[in-house]
Design a binder for these strands. Structure first.
Lengths: 129, 129
DNA sequence: CAGGTATATTCCGCAAGCAGAATTTAGGGC
DNA sequence: GCCCTAAATTCTGCTTGCGGAATATACCTG
């Protein structure tokens, strides 16, 4: 993976917020959308961008799409995602996003797929393949 | 300094190569140009971009311009520059640039300002103000 | 299969970035 | 003052990215 490509993926605030969330685990689009409070198209296009450039993967679950960070990131990507996490910890928006995520996971799962719920109810790894 | 701004500065290969060099210390434009082997306009414009966005500073020395990384980078910038350095260490081009720089500093200083020469001959900090 | 929800795609207009050619600015040496 | 070198700026054309509106696709439910 090219270093420049990584930075290109990182130079949009919406994408940074998405990656910050995905660091906590896989998420379906609707939950990302809810946390970021941005229009559906916007979220979808940025997720598409990240997927095209190899930072995230998708799988289907009923008619949801579950996005996750790539399983085995290249060294450069791993380093930069770690760096992003550190930097995000100092930023109000990123912290608020994580808080929203925590609240969303704590509440009884209304309509979302199991994998988006709290870690306890997440699908077992053996089934996700 | 905005995190997105930092990443925008990092998402061009030429700028990454420049920043990688500047990590070793201040450099005049002509030396950057020589090491990167890129046209003068290109180097100049990318240096301007980095300056505009607060990643580097300039000072004059005769009719050279000496560029340097900002003296007191924000935490996010420092973190990302460190990360870049790690990533660059794994890339052939970045390594070759550093080798060229080392060779350039080792050779008798033909025409360049003192500050671009080997660390021993660099201007003392007290004079640079 | 009709209707609903979740998500992606297409189309459009706009702004920004990049590269190169040519020109300009600024300082130094004679 | 003239010429040389170092570096920046301007102009142009091209490409990419972003956002939003509208539309399409896919899957589920009854």
């Amino acid at each position: 993976m090219d270093l420049v490509t990584i930075y290109e993926c990182l130079c949009d605030r919406t994408r940074l917020r998405i990656l910050n969330l995905l660091r906590q685990g896989p998420l379906c689009v609707c939950h990302i959308q809810e946390i970021l409070d941005e229009p559906q198209v916007k979220i979808s296009k940025h997720l598409g961008y990240l997927k095209t450039h190899g930072l995230v993967t998708v799988r289907k679950e009923a008619n949801w799409r579950i996005y996750a960070l790539v399983a085995k990131p290249a060294k450069a990507l791993a380093a930069n995602l770690a760096c992003l996490q550190d930097c995000a910890a100092e930023d109000k928006t990123f912290r608020r996003d994580l808080e929203k995520l925590a609240r969303l996971r704590a509440r009884p799962d209304d309509r979302a797929p199991a994998c988006c719920a709290s870690p306890r109810t997440r699908l077992s790894p053996t089934r996700s393949a």
